[in-house]
């Protein structure tokens, strides 16, 4: 699989990562190496009759009961916020 600079730019956009031109250059090569190595290797195996395995644990139905617990103090929730005002987190205006 060939991975191009445009692929990296699209992925970086999707992952919201600003990359410098040098980073794009290097990561394009790195990604090609990693993906090709990994996929070439995995594709040596025939997995037609194999089910994907999401969980190694054979467990299901782990629930909590519908009981209210005390929420955190707002100060604790907002303590680490880079910008806050009026009890809210602040972000640049979101245009819809």
């Amino acid at each position: 699989m060939a991975i191009t600079k445009e692929d990296i730019e699209r992925l970086a956009d999707l992952a919201r990562l600003n990359l410098t031109p040098e980073e794009i250059e290097k990561l394009t090569g790195d990604m090609e190496t990693i993906i090709n190595y990994s996929m070439n290797k995995l594709n040596e195996l025939n997995t037609d009759d194999v089910l994907p395995m999401e969980h190694v644990l054979p467990i299901s139905n782990v629930f909590r009961e519908d009981i209210c617990e005390k929420s955190f103090d707002r100060e604790e929730i907002l303590k680490n916020a880079p910008e806050k005002a009026e009890g809210c987190f602040l972000v640049p205006k979101v245009v819809e």
Binding site: S38, L42, N43, L45, T47, V50, P52, M53
Partner: peptide, 13 residues
């Protein structure tokens, strides 16, 4: 890619 890896995971398991 991803699903293939999950299948190989089962084989290894």
């Amino acid at each position: 890619c991803y699903n293939k890896a999950l299948k190989v995971k089962r084989m290894i398991f």
